[in-house]
């Protein structure tokens, strides 16, 4: 039976079809979906910060160390870098008026993710990044499809979680 595995902040999960991976409430965090189409195996990483520079207590908090850890796990499963593709989402700036690049974590997360994936020669097949809205996503490992939704303000002042994009 297919499961939907929820991935919390600063964590990751690896699974294979027919399972799906999901995470909710992505703001400035960056979510990286790595997919090996031949084996229909994928990983979802939900990272908060770009680089491991200061607090080393959780390597999954940072893009660089989390990706390296997941790549190691893929290699142990016999999945190599050329087998992988990536889709990324997040890196928003939730609060308008906080324009200092130094404190714009979302932008720095996007830059570090793209830099790292380029270095590893993992092609980015789709992205839904930046902006100022939070996102949630589900990564279907049967097809490799990533479906992204965000909370939209409706006319009656209530919020709907509507479909935003399919990658």
């Amino acid at each position: 039976m297919a499961r939907i595995i929820q991935v919390p902040t600063a964590d990751y999960a690896i699974a294979s079809a027919p399972d799906s991976l999901s995470t909710v409430g992505i703001g400035s965090c960056i979510v990286i979906c790595l997919y090996a189409p031949k084996t229909k195996t994928g990983a979802l990483l939900h990272c908060m910060l770009p680089r491991e520079e200061y607090d080393l207590s959780n390597s999954l908090r940072n893009v660089d160390t989390a990706v390296n850890q997941v790549i190691e796990e893929f290699l142990a499963k016999g999945i190599h870098l050329p087998d992988l593709t990536a889709k990324i989402a997040g890196g928003a700036q939730m609060f308008a008026g906080v324009d200092n690049k130094e404190t714009n974590i979302g932008m720095r997360n996007i830059e570090e993710t793209k830099r790292l994936l380029t270095t590893l020669k993992i092609p980015i097949m789709g992205e839904e990044i930046g902006g100022s809205r939070a996102r949630s996503l589900i990564f279907e490992l049967e097809s490799g499809t990533v479906t992204i939704s965000s909370a939209q303000l409706a006319n009656d002042d209530t919020f709907d979680t509507g479909l935003t994009k399919i990658l």
């Binding site: 409430g25 703001g27 400035s28 965090c29 910060l49 996102r135 909370a151």
Partner: peptide, 15 residues
């Protein structure tokens, strides 16, 4: 801002 709780708080604690 008005949005999902986790997204709001994570941006603040990241800083």
């Amino acid at each position: 801002t008005s949005d999902m709780s986790r997204a709001i708080v994570n941006e603040i604690v990241s800083e």
